[in-house]
Amino acid sequence: MIPDRAEGPDLIRPYALTGGRTRPSRSDLTLTTSVVAVAEVVEDDPEAREIHALCGRPVTVAEVASRSGLPLGVVRVLLADLVDRGNVLAHTPDRERDRPDEATLRAVLARIKEL
């Protein structure tokens, strides 16, 4: 784990971790994009390794950010690098593009009422 990043003042500026890049190399990583680790990371970059480790099972970009304690923008840049290098696979849900149909909505409604 990256120790105590959420605690106390940061000693380094967040985008130092990305070599100053604030925009990810790909724009398809939304908050609810699922990511999962595949190939091992060979780079000796602790943040990339940390993020890769957090993707051990399919998890959303938002959850990776939350669990790493790194700002979302930084996570997006580092995750995009991992996807580009083939270390992580990404899947953006269909709902980002299509509205749910009536049958889906009825199913969702029934499930929520059961909660």
């Binding site: 609810t32 699922s34 399919p58 992580v88 696979l89 899947h91 849900p93 269909d94 709902r95 969702v108």
Partner: peptide, 16 residues
């Protein structure tokens, strides 16, 4: 967006 780095078994996510 399909292509390299995409997989198909992720659950459908609804966002509120």
């Amino acid at each position: 967006m399909d292509g390299p780095g995409v997989f198909g078994q992720a659950p459908d996510t609804l966002k509120i």
